[in-house]
């Protein structure tokens, strides 16, 4: 397995979606390839960081505005 082939299946690896034989081949590649181990570690960290950055909360003021607007819509609807 080349580095290019290993990197192409990282998402499947993290989802534990690889067949046992491909998983064995990939782990053998990692064992002998320091750049791919670094790539895997930073790929996982990137996934976690992007998720953390995207985990935003709706501001309280916006919640209040939305609630008031929708309650008015409901009254008009009725």
């Amino acid at each position: 397995m080349t580095c290019q082939e290993a990197i192409a299946i990282l998402a499947d690896y993290l989802e534990m979606a690889l067949t046992p034989s491909v998983l064995e081949e990939l782990e053998r590649h990692f064992a002998g390839c320091e750049p791919c181990r670094a790539y895997l570690a930073t790929y996982k960290k990137t996934r976690d960081l992007a998720a953390a950055a995207n985990r935003v909360e709706m501001p309280e003021e916006m919640k209040r505005r939305l609630r008031e607007f929708l309650l008015e819509q409901l009254r008009q609807n009725g």
Partner: peptide
């Protein structure tokens, strides 16, 4: 192999 010098391909800030 990944393109780039050794420092680039080994960069690990995780």
């Amino acid at each position: 192999h990944r393109e780039g010098d050794r420092a680039w391909v080994l960069a690990d800030w995780s």
